[in-house]
Design a protein around this nucleic acid. Structure first.
Lengths: 138, 138
DNA sequence: TATTGTTATACTCTATAACTATA
DNA sequence: TATAGTTATAGAGTATAACAATA
């Protein structure tokens, strides 16, 4: 992987390397990558409907269903009817879901810290800020 | 996309945004993302066998075949038997392949420049260097 | 016996269409 | 009529196994 490569190729390479390093962590905690993404989204903001959640994480609403089925069966999330709109169901983390997400997140952060070893704080800040810029520029 | 997100999520978001911006460019030139990856690999280094090429770009060797079939039919690459090992076939860019790759690369770079607008040169350098570091840390 | 390229097959992931119950 | 959630189905993308030619 050369620094002269396309930026897209560099992003893909870094993303793949991170995903490969994080996969064993997720497996150890019994979560798929997308399930972790769901838990992270729920841990961050307001309790969303399934449709809003799907849009937040840019995931297909029909695929989200089996994902939530698994998380619900594992006791990590609940789906309750929205009192304001009985078509919609509000997704929330259970206390166990909060704990599981926090544990996985800590482990994930450790892996990432490991991969960032050797980069000075200024470079790390620039990396995060530039990635956020790129991700939001669409 | 928050700067407090996991690094993996940031990489994925940036990569997705870049890929979405570049897809129309590739379509306009009649190439898929993976076909462009192949052309880029061939433009860079020594002419490899199919197996070596597959490993270089981290692509399945069986999938590479139909990819090369398409590129060969489009007159962008050739596959010649390796004189030193008649099992192997050496993949090379044709002159038209060289031209096509150069044209697409220029267009891709323009898109990326566009997405980087607003980031100062130091941040851009830090971004490339940090991404290369992450991609090679596995 | 092992390896390169190839084909065929199975499997997973993702996208599309249609149904239900509410609005 | 339109929307949220669901299901079923089809399609693309990916991985696995086996074969012919060569080492």
């Amino acid at each position: 992987m050369n620094e002269d490569d396309d930026l897209g190729a560099l992003c893909a390479g870094a993303g793949r390397a991170l995903a490969e390093a994080e996969r064993p962590v997720l497996e150890r905690h019994g979560l798929s990558m997308w399930q972790y993404v769901v838990l992270s989204a729920l841990a961050d903001g307001e309790a969303p409907s399934q449709l809003v959640l799907a849009r937040q994480i840019r995931y297909d609403k029909t695929r989200l269903i089996t994902l939530l089925d698994g998380l619900e069966a594992a006791g990590l999330v609940t789906r309750d009817p929205d009192p304001a709109d009985r078509r919609a169901r509000i997704v929330r983390l259970t206390p166990e879901g909060v704990r599981r997400h926090a544990a996985v997140r800590t482990a994930i952060r450790e892996v990432e810290e490991d991969r960032l070893a050797g980069l000075d704080p200024a470079t790390r800040r620039a990396l995060r800020s530039a990635l956020a810029h790129l991700a939001n520029s669409g």
